[in-house]
Amino acid sequence: MQAAVVVFPGSNRDRDAVRALTLVTGRAPHTVWHHSTELPKADLIVLPGGFSHGDYLRCGAMAAHSPVMREVRAAAERGIPVLGVCNGFQILVEAHLLPGALLRNAALKFSCKRVTLRVETSNSPFLRRYNAGETITIPSAHGEGNYFAPPDLVKRLEDEDRVAFRYTYEHNGSVKDIAGILSENRRVLGMMPHPEDAVEELTGGIDGKRLFESIVEAVAQ
């Protein structure tokens, strides 16, 4: 599998994503600068964490208008899987590739800790190697991960089985403790916590590794 990691000025978990993908796929992903007007051929696109353009405006708002995002949108429309983690999730929301909004954490502070998540569905190329209902522990580090959606949207996400992960406790004020959601075609996943930092026993455990193994398996089929 060949993945591509988009790098915005201010991305800071791009290396973490590259490392995880290299470890799992055995192949270094392409890295794509935000100015690019074309994407290399890839089976997976990752928008990594960080503070794109400093995020002095709404997080991800400027990055969502980067030239490369036109290509990311086109790829998503063709069904290429797209993973947005943390700032990447914020960018996907700002680019309207996923619905809802990410607000400041309810406690108004940045929060870094290992969080436990419940996997809500295994029905996605990103989640097939998890069991719905199981809990996993992976790192989380953000100041603006408080997922907001109006009640009718929440209901739709739930009815369509598009909530990928929930925190197992009140973490940052997210509506219904939502930590990650899927697109309608289930091939775009946005999530605040960092599976790419949970791929080795030595440094944070391996509960995030299956997410990448899932997508490798899905692409191979």
Partner: peptide, 11 residues
């Protein structure tokens, strides 16, 4: 907890 102690994945 207000500091990102985990970025880079080498902690």
């Amino acid at each position: 907890e207000q500091y990102d102690s985990l970025v880079r994945g080498d902690t």
